[in-house]
């Protein structure tokens, strides 16, 4: 049987996902939403969950590398790294579709300074999963209420435990993976130093340029399946022995599907929803520092993306 508890302890963002998806459920083969989510339909869920999917995608593509300089020899290490993402105010709310029951009606919302009336409201500003209070929508015949956000201004991403293999072609491969029952996670990143091909820095060995290509996939039964592709280029320079500064630009994508059924649907025809997974993040600018002494390496970087990210970790090199 799938052990939800183990996943909760191991992966924070995954825990979030699991709590959200499995709250009040008994069957783990498919995701069932409890009645607290009855106000969410597919269209609404796309906007509500999009910042969360963005966080998951961004955490995939964090801690993919440090310096751009790779030796012409075999190496092997293990890296433990963590990250935190700041949620911008623009991702705390979204333009939610007005429920069908409220279309073509005179509707009212409380704005703090008074009542806002509209005869043809089609959208209403509501909190995303990271936002705060929701705004109830009133009419003389119906009242619609909504699920609120979790009031989160920063979130820790999925922590990475990754194996690193360096090969003499000045290539480095990082591998991440996990599997718990129906949950499956796989990720890898290939880093290649390229400046030597073009003799950009001549015999200067303190500077380097590298490119990377990463792929990540996470799936759970038939319920969700998402994958991310990321590529980028970076420059690094050794400041003092063992200490390198690096910076670069990444382009990343995230796609997939999320499917859930309602445990107690109010409307028997409204039992299931399926949404396409999307992200706010495509471009990421990154600046970092790494220090290696003997078999130990510590690294830290900060990235500007749709959710600005700080990340860091430690690596142990066996050879």
């Amino acid at each position: 049987m799938f052990s939800l508890k183990r996943v909760k302890q191991a992966l924070d963002l995954t825990k979030f996902f699991m709590i959200m998806c499995f709250a009040g459920t008994t069957a783990f083969a498919d995701i069932e939403l409890g009645s607290e989510f009855n106000s969410i339909n597919a269209k609404y869920a796309s906007g509500y969950f999009k910042p969360l999917f963005t966080s998951i995608g961004q955490s995939f593509n964090t801690n993919l590398f440090t310096t751009a300089k790779y030796k012409k020899e075999w190496s092997f290490g293990i890296d433990f790294s963590v990250q935190a993402m700041m949620i911008p105010s623009s991702q705390l709310t979204f333009n939610a579709p007005v429920p069908d029951t409220m279309l073509n009606k005179t509707t009212y919302i409380y704005t703090g300074s008074g009542t806002n009336t509209s005869n043809n409201r089609t959208t209403i500003t509501q909190p995303t999963i990271y936002g705060g209070k929701a705004t109830p929508l009133f009419s003389a015949s119906t009242t619609e209420t909504f699920v609120e956000g979790f009031n989160i201004s920063n979130i820790s991403g999925i922590p990475n435990i990754q194996f690193i293999l360096g090969i003499p072609t000045q290539t480095e491969i990082r591998f991440r993976g996990a599997g718990f029952g129906d949950l499956f996670f796989l990720g890898f990143n290939i880093n290649q130093q390229i400046d030597q091909f073009f003799k950009i820095f001549g015999k200067d060995e303190i500077q380097a340029i590298a490119v990377n290509l990463a792929y990540h996939s996470i799936s759970y039964s038939k319920a969700f399946d998402m994958s991310s592709l990321c590529f980028g280029a970076r420059y690094s320079r050794e400041l003092v022995e063992g200490l390198n500064v690096y910076g670069g630009v990444l382009y990343e994508t995230l796609s997939g599907k999320f499917e859930a059924t309602y445990k107690n649907p109010d409307d028997p025809n409204f039992k299931k929803f399926k949404i396409d997974i999307e992200t706010f993040s495509n471009i990421r600018l990154l600046l970092g520092l790494t220090y290696r002494i003997s078999f130990f390496e510590a690294h830290f970087d900060a990235a500007y993306a749709s959710q600005p990210t700080i990340a860091g970790g430690i690596s142990f090199w066996f050879f």
Binding site: A23, V82, A84, N154, I314
Partner: peptide, 26 residues
């Protein structure tokens, strides 16, 4: 510095977990 960073980031993890345990519906 890396130890300090780990402490700060693990603090974020703890905050995240406690934030996520409470859902408010209207």
């Amino acid at each position: 510095l890396s130890v300090i960073l780990s402490i700060i980031l693990s603090g974020c993890y703890a905050d995240t977990v406690s934030s996520l345990e409470r859902l408010t519906v209207q």
